[in-house]
């Protein structure tokens, strides 16, 4: 808890509750994917989009369905509750990107902000989730909960980046969980906590004095007989095979730019279609 903060006033009932839905399916030609459901809600604005910036797996592919997520307002703020449900239908390819980084802030009335993502990737589908960083602002209290169920013959790559405060700022409390099950069995389950109430997060076993932490998870049934070997390619980063046809790239860095560079290097090591190539002029 943040002991120096004043007693919280009674919260006003102006908290945002948002429930957005996104789904893709294979079109009637059996080749092109299309968005079959797109429901924005309040601050969660989903829009069909064109290729933007660097993309792994789907570089220049015109048969993929692309959607971008934009925050219609600042936040989430303390007390807000956002949820996004995503269904990547059998055989379809969905690319989801963010328009900008997400800044999580404390609310006027205090309270915890929450964002949950419930994602299902069906048989033969490909899901590329390439969001921008989440920035945990000073005194925020945010919980980020991501659950993904992926079918055994589906492919996926996702990136997650958390920044510990805006420039020169001590972050508030941030807790995230990413749980991936494959065919119902656990594949990857990691919770991350930092901020004033996360004891030991600043220790050398967890984050030390880092200002940014991130990972990339790639799942590919082609790795059923063994995922690529471990490669600790930097003092603050390593690519490791998971106990299944998947790899994790974990990186801890001083700031968001250094983190992004480490993650890009990890993808370069993975090679082949996984390298994030630029589709447009965007320099990200």
């Amino acid at each position: 808890m943040f002991v120096s903060s004043p007693p919280e006033p009674a919260p006003h009932a102006n908290h945002m509750v948002a429930r957005a839905v996104l789904a893709s399916e294979l079109g009637p030609d059996g080749r092109r994917s299309r968005v079959s459901r797109l429901r924005s809600d309040g601050p969660l604005v989903l829009r069909p989009s064109h290729p933007k910036g660097a993309e792994p797996l789907t570089h220049r592919r015109t048969d993929a369905a692309r959607v971008s997520l934009a925050a219609g307002t600042a936040g989430p703020l303390g007390g807000d509750d956002y949820a996004l449900s995503i269904h990547v239908g059998a055989g379809s390819t969905l690319v989801l990107q963010d328009v900008a980084a997400m800044l999580v802030l404390p609310g006027a009335g205090g309270g915890r902000s929450r964002m949950s993502l419930d994602i299902r990737v069906d048989d033969g589908a490909t899901f590329v989730w390439w969001p921008e960083p989440i920035i945990a602002a000073h005194r925020c209290d945010h919980t980020h909960d991501i659950r993904i169920e992926i079918a055994p013959d589906a492919r996926m790559i996702l990136r997650e980046e958390a920044i510990l405060g805006r420039h020169g700022e001590v972050p508030g409390n941030f807790a995230s969980r990413l749980r991936i099950t494959r065919g119902g069995a656990a594949l990857y389950d990691q919770r991350l906590r930092f901020g004033p109430s996360a004891a030991g997060a600043d220790g050398a076993a967890v984050l030390g004095d880092a200002g940014a932490v991130g990972s990339i998870i790639a799942v590919d049934p082609a790795w059923e007989r063994g995922a690529p070997p471990a490669d600790p390619y930097d003092r603050g980063a390593a690519l490791t095979p998971l106990a299944g046809p998947a790899i994790a790239i974990g990186a801890v860095a001083a700031d968001s730019l250094a983190l992004r560079r480490l993650l890009v290097r990890g993808l370069d090591i993975l090679g082949g279609p996984w390298i994030a190539r630029h589709n447009g002029k965007d320099g990200s």
Binding site: R177, R179, D189, Q190, R191, L192, R193, A204, A205, V206, L207, G208, A210, V213, S215, P232, R235, G236, A237, A238, T240, G250, A251, V252
Partner: peptide
């Protein structure tokens, strides 16, 4: 529980 320890994994 599933608390991660990124630096311990890398080290």
């Amino acid at each position: 529980p599933a608390p991660g320890s990124p630096l311990a994994d890398i080290a």
